[in-house]
Simulated assay, not measured.
Amino acid sequence: MEKRNSTSDFILLGLFKHTSPHLFLFAMVLTIAITSLMGNALMLLLIHQDHRLHTPMYFLLSQLSFMDVMLVSTIVPRMTTGFLTGKKSISPAGCGLQIFVSLTLGGGESFLLAAMSYDRCVAVCHPLRYPVLMSRQLCLRMTLGSWSLGAADGLIQAVITLSFPYCSTREIDHFFCEAPMLVRLACTDTSVFENVMYICCVLMLLIPLSLILTSYSLILAAVLCMRSTEALRKAFTTCSSHLAVVGLFYGAAIFIYMRPKSYRSATSDKVVSAFYTIFTPMLNPLIYSLRNREVKGALEKWLGKCVNIKTQKT
């Protein structure tokens, strides 16, 4: 097959076609993306402004919201521009940047959720030692470790993916550059890289997931020993929001990255990618705010301040 210069642009075929049903779906996805940005930005604002939320749990949650804002901001504007203007080409540098950012945030969020599960484990199993076991330094180290591990995975995969020679067919049947989709277009044998990439993805998902399962096993054991109904309720409230986010994130990630190649299809990959890059980031702040009285209280306090300022100006 004909080989092309590595500087040639790729073509993103996108998620939607210009039909009435797809226009409706596009408007819905765009609305979800805007809601996601606003919800996570509001969560960051509340955590920053309300001193009651200056705790390890909410510090980690602020990092989760920041990752979600970056993920949506990286994917949606490019997808929207391509759909509205018809300009579907993307440079190799732009493609590599999308791969790097998406994998950095995906891997970082995976380890961050593990750190959050440890935080919940300490809160339930060792409440009196919580300030010592979840010190600010430890939170910073866990956060830095999450970002660093995600960035290392993203950088390696982006560099290696773009180092392959690509054929005359440069059309990517996706709405953003994802390493597994791009590798399919290479004009060389990529089986070794695909196997290594698969192993890396498994490790990036299963190691944090095993830590999460261990933490919740300890939490379950502690909860079963509780005789107080109030203590049980508090433990359930403390952990249920995080479990819901873990289920959404790992369900989508395992479906995308851990399925055998023979079970993959472009349509299902695009739908699930849209779910974890656009829809899940919208759900995260909703899950934590709707089930958390502290966040509700911070929101009411902030809205009260806004109303007072507006009243004073008028």
Rank of each mutant, 00 (worst) to 15 (best):
F10I: 04
F26G: 08
L205R: 10
P208N: 06
P56A: 05
Y288E: 01
C239N: 03
C225W: 13
G145N: 03
K301G: 08
L213H: 12
A179T: 09
F176M: 02
V101A: 04
L286W: 09
P127H: 05
P131G: 07
Y130C: 11
D189H: 06
L224I: 10
D119A: 09
L60K: 02
E178N: 13
L232H: 14
K296M: 03
N292R: 06
I309M: 08
K234L: 13
F255I: 09
T19N: 08
S36M: 06
M204A: 14
R136N: 14
N5A: 11
D119Q: 11
Q157M: 11
T7S: 06
L299E: 06
T188C: 04
R291F: 10
L113H: 03
L243F: 14
A179C: 13
L97K: 05
T280S: 12
A231F: 07
I156S: 00
M142H: 10
R264N: 05
M197H: 14
I160Q: 00
F26L: 05
T161H: 01
N195E: 14
V122C: 02
V76T: 07
E230R: 08
T35L: 15
N308C: 14
N5W: 01
L25T: 07
L84A: 09
S146A: 15
Q137E: 11
R52W: 09
T55Y: 08
S217V: 04
L211P: 06
T237F: 10
S146W: 02
N5M: 05
Q98R: 03
K301W: 09
P77D: 04
S20F: 11
L23S: 13
H242R: 07
R129E: 15
L42K: 05
D119F: 02
I256M: 14
Q98K: 03
R264D: 05
T31W: 11
G96K: 00
V271R: 07
H18Q: 10
L185V: 03
S273G: 10
A252S: 13
K234C: 11
A253H: 06
A115Y: 01
T267G: 01
S62D: 03
M79E: 01
K234Q: 14
M181S: 10
M226S: 14
L37E: 05
F249W: 12
K87D: 13
F164N: 00
M1N: 11
S65D: 03
L112M: 05
L23E: 15
D269P: 07
K17L: 02
T267F: 11
R184K: 12
L232P: 02
F24G: 11
T161L: 00
T74F: 08
S265K: 03
Y263F: 14
I207W: 02
S89K: 12
M197Y: 15
H242Y: 09
K305C: 08
M181K: 08
G150C: 04
P127C: 00
A179W: 01
H54M: 12
M38F: 14
Y198V: 09
E300Q: 12
T314N: 14
P77R: 04
L71Q: 02
S289I: 01
V72S: 02
D269W: 08
M38E: 07
M57T: 12
Y250D: 05
S241T: 11
